[in-house]
């Protein structure tokens, strides 16, 4: 077992976990933060997306011990106007992928603001990339939504950047 500390949604949490425990299971099963979802447990759906020091990661492939002393934000700690936009634009149906979509969108907007390009960015040299719907879709493609709420999610993010 490993004793670790981690800042989760602003407060220091002490965790006593085996090294094999994923960050996702540590959040859900040890800290009771079930807002972060498990959809595939292998990095193929994005439902478990959280922010580690502001960067979006999939918590299922992260071992909790690797993130000792890091700053983790889950959906329970997100306060973003995106959340209202998701409701207004019906950017979800069942709600299971939603936490991951929102955390991913928050992280994605930070990446974009820092000038990070995507696979559909035409001019890689520029740091001022217009966040078109095509850019949003590519950058959000790591978050599956089986209900097919993609249009609403993109609309919510577009509203968020206006």
């Amino acid at each position: 077992m490993a004793d670790i500390r981690m800042r989760v949604n602003g407060s220091i949490e002490k965790l006593d976990v085996e090294p094999r425990v994923s960050l996702l299971d540590a959040l859900r099963e040890h800290l009771g933060l079930t807002g972060t979802k498990k959809g595939c447990d292998q990095g193929a759906c994005g439902a478990c997306t959280v922010l580690a020091d502001g960067e979006r990661i999939v918590s299922c492939l992260a071992l909790a011990v690797q993130y000792a002393d890091r700053d983790i934000t889950t959906i329970e700690g997100v306060t973003s106007p995106l959340q209202r936009s998701f409701v207004r634009h019906d950017g979800f149906q069942c709600g299971y992928c939603t936490s991951g979509q929102i955390c991913s969108a928050v992280g994605m907007l930070t990446e974009h603001a820092a000038g990070a390009p995507s696979a559909v960015t035409g001019d890689l040299a520029t740091m001022e990339i217009e966040l078109t719907a095509e850019e949003i879709r590519e950058r959000m493609s790591g978050n599956l939504c089986r209900c097919g709420a993609y249009n609403g999610i993109v609309a919510a993010i577009e509203e968020g950047i206006r």
């Binding site: 990661i57 991913s104 390009p117 995507s118 696979a119 890689l124 040299a125």
Partner: peptide, 28 residues
């Protein structure tokens, strides 16, 4: 992929990185 030197001098490398996996996985 986001590094200026790679984007300007080796665009194929930046594009290859960006074509892989997802934003979250690339961050890890």
């Amino acid at each position: 992929a986001a590094h200026r030197l790679i984007r300007t001098r080796y665009p194929m490398l930046a594009q290859a990185l960006l074509a892989g996996a997802s934003g979250q996985l690339r961050n890890m």
